[in-house]
Amino acid sequence: MRIMVGALMAMVAGQSAADAQGRRGEEPVDAVVACRTERDDKARLACFDRTSATIASARQSGDLIVLNRAKVVDRRRRSFGLPSANALAVADVRGATVKELSGVVRAVSLTRTPGRYVFELTDNSAWEMLEPSAPPSAKEAVNITAVRLGGFRAKIGRGRAVMVKRVR
């Protein structure tokens, strides 16, 4: 299923589909769907041509973004734990929330603080343990979940859960 996210911030030159149909403020995708109600074949085709041209122009200019739900979820999974520097409109995509990340430890290194480690997962993400704990072993399963107030807790193998932060 493809999801269309965004709005036209600046309408293209000429008459928009919303204006043509007397529906000011209508989203461009809704205008295409509204064309289905035209009974006359020629009028329906003209409506589809007009509204699809508006959408094509908006996509080309970057005012309308088309996203695939699977790609949104994948992007969120890859950026899980990182500060959201680029808050794209993917925040509003239903069913695309990522609240936990599971992985396998690939490498472990000691931090400058005794008892604290940085572990790297097979997906190339790196997490720093914020509490003194035994180091995780390579190939050990990890489940990282988001907790209240923006923190993250990692359950490493059968050990106790520890607070972590994403390094990269």
Rank of each mutant, 00 (worst) to 15 (best):
R2H: 10
I3R: 10
I3L: 09
G6M: 09
A7S: 14
M11Q: 14
Q15T: 15
S16M: 10
S16H: 12
A17P: 08
A18D: 04
G22W: 05
G25S: 11
E27P: 09
P28M: 13
V29R: 15
D30S: 13
A31P: 14
A31W: 05
R39A: 13
D40E: 08
C47D: 05
C47I: 04
A53S: 11
T54A: 03
T54D: 12
I55Y: 06
A56R: 12
G62F: 12
N68D: 15
V72W: 02
D74E: 12
R75T: 01
R75L: 05
G81C: 08
A85G: 12
A87E: 09
L88N: 00
A89M: 02
V93M: 04
V93T: 03
V93L: 04
G95N: 02
T97M: 05
K99V: 07
S102C: 03
V105T: 08
S109E: 13
L110P: 04
T113R: 13
T113N: 12
D123I: 07
A126K: 11
E131C: 07
A134G: 11
A138P: 14
E140D: 10
R153V: 10
A154T: 04
I156W: 01
R158E: 15
G159P: 01
G159W: 01
V162K: 09
M163H: 10
V164P: 02
V164Q: 06
V164N: 03
V167Q: 10
